[in-house]
Design a protein around this nucleic acid. Structure first.
Lengths: 215, 215, 215, 215
DNA sequence: GATGAATGAGGATTCATTCAT
DNA sequence: TATGAATGAATCCTCATTCAT
């Protein structure tokens, strides 16, 4: 049957390319994690992937494109793994639980994908915002905004944005600390991060969300 | 009299050397701020300072040494300008005030010395902690620890360290946001940062420090 | 009947091949014109043709072969379009007319086929004469020689060759100027080119060719 | 005496640089001549000069800068060697003599400096005019314009420009032929070039310049 | 001290060409 | 045939660092 032929042939070819891309992204993840985004070289990535520099450029036009694709896949996997459910379905979930589970998932994801951290920090000149950094950032931000808007429904958008930015900043700062420690100490930092976020958000939540009326 | 000669010559040389060093550090500050630490090149620093690369290497053995010295001077100037008084003299100062003034001073210092931010972020690989990054970090950390230990006297050292780390992380995250905005929005972020820190620390403080008993 | 199969299959293949070749040559023409011969890349040609690099190499062993074939077809088309009639049928045609019409046709052909210019100039190292450049050159040269020998019948071959080379050189130089201008200015350059050629050749022609005796 | 010291020290340093620059330009001349401008690589130039690539880039920011400097020096030397005297001092000089001597000098200069040719042709896409090509071109053009305006005083500027362009084109075309031959054949081409130019210009000159009235 | 020339390995990227499918 | 992945040497250019002067 020519059907299988005609369908499988191209599929296999594409498959090889897909495999290479995956392999290159994996290598890039390793290199970015090891040396940081700025210091990472395309040659090093190619070497790590066991291919020639030319091969890398057959799939990516430059370093940033790699980072962008890597970021995209990361975000995609995040969504696959944890669903859109960073936002709690039930708005009566207590803040502790909402934040706690979000942080836990965030941390877990990061430990599985250490590149995430490297990509989020990028070349780190306050002004220069690179695309991939920005893409990751924006995606995370909007997810946080979603979550927050569900538990802070009456907040004006500008405040919501600011609060989201703050939460993301705290997340990132906390993550750095978490990753820098191990074992019990790491757990303690996870708890601190949760505390910081919960306490920061608590006054904004008001009496809704199952909190006893403070009066 | 040879005495004056022997004394003045070296003195003058040292003075010239000091000037050179200051000049180089200023140039380095500019370049680090503009391009970020990793991307900054020693040649660019020398050029910015108006000297030859060779001259730079007469005073600093390598790029990192420049960053370290720059960090040291920065910390020194911080102490000069604001004294040891990040720690409140009066332990009865309300938390709002203590945090508020510390944040204000921290932000002000950063706006005057934009390198600070660049140095604090450094090449940013969670594992690789470079010396100069570390020095700055450690200094800041110990100042924060001092401050916190004065308002949280009964806290065990390990908890204190963790809390200090968290505060520094939040500071840095907040600073990034503050620097990324201008005018009223910047002020709003300053306030958010204060809020976050105050709320994070508040439960740890207890009834001391002039807080009305919550009961 | 297997006859049709055996005949049609190859025929179809050849037909397909011819189409591919034409397609590739057209693409090559575009790329050579746009970027120049030296800077043109085989990958770019393949891309422009909408085929893979491998396909290109199935029909041409290398870049030069493409240029050679392109030049051949160009010369062939020139002959098709304008006949062998660069040489005037009637040797009594006045020089002005002969040169004028030859130049006009030459210019017209070039404007229709801008590659021509790119191919004629080639990598341009006085010594290194590449094959395709040479082929074009030689063909043009012999046509000019034909033309000239018809109007300068008694000239020794060495002189004829030299004169032909000069005419071709002037042609090329003039063409460059013509192509570099537009509208009235272009026309003016066309006229200048004609003038230059006519005046150059005029003394060689003598009283033959319908020129009034200068005495 | 410190005077000599203070003056000689910097002079010697600059001298080393100057020597390197001269050496690099010589190497560039060789490489440009051998491989053509487009195909010439900076690494090849450095290798030819016996220095590392980095050294080359200490003196020239890129390949074009080398070509520009080379062109400038070439033009400068042309002026040094032959003075401003491409333009005949005496306007009564017969055309034959004026053109003849100009061509002779032009050819002689080119034979001494074969790069000249390579630089004048450049990357050869009719549109793309590179700076160094242009600079050379413009300089030559203006010299020719000077010469022509002295022997064609009543010509409108637009015509003069066109005529100059034509002459330069013919020069270049002729030069190519001259360089492609040797011995007697070369001389014959030199004569042909002179003929072509003289005949092209003659009708424009009119009765001035010592020509017998044609009537 | 100061200069600036020199280095050479390494950066990103391209390209003619080959090869497995 | 056709594909497109693969190559690897070569491109231009940069940079931390050294060294003769």
């Amino acid at each position: 049957m020519p059907t299988t032929e005609e369908k499988d042939q191209p599929r296999r070819r594409q498959a090889r390319g897909e495999r290479r891309i995956a392999q290159l992204l994996e290598a890039a993840a390793t290199v970015f994690t090891t040396t940081g985004y700025t210091a990472a070289s395309t040659n090093a990535i190619a070497r790590e992937a066991g291919v020639s520099p030319g091969t890398l450029y057959q799939f990516f036009p430059n370093k940033e494109a790699i980072a962008i694709e890597l970021g995209d896949r990361l975000m995609h996997e995040m969504r696959e793994t944890y669903g859109e459910a960073l936002a709690p379905v039930d708005p009566t979930t207590p803040l502790e639980e909402a934040v706690g589970s979000a942080v836990d998932r965030f941390i877990a994801f990061n430990c599985e994908h250490p590149v995430f951290f490297a990509l989020m920090h990028g070349p780190d000149i306050p002004g220069r915002i690179t695309e991939e950094h920005d893409a990751l950032h924006a995606t995370l931000l909007s997810r946080i905004e979603d979550l927050l808007s569900s538990i802070l429904p009456d907040t004006p958008p500008a405040d919501l944005a600011r609060t989201s930015h703050m939460c993301l900043g705290m997340y990132k700062a906390g993550l750095e600390l978490v990753l820098a420690h191990e074992g019990a100490e790491r757990d303690a930092y996870v708890q601190e991060l949760k505390n910081a976020l919960i306490r920061y958000l608590d006054p904004l939540v008001g009496a809704r969300l199952g909190h006893p009326d403070p009066s």
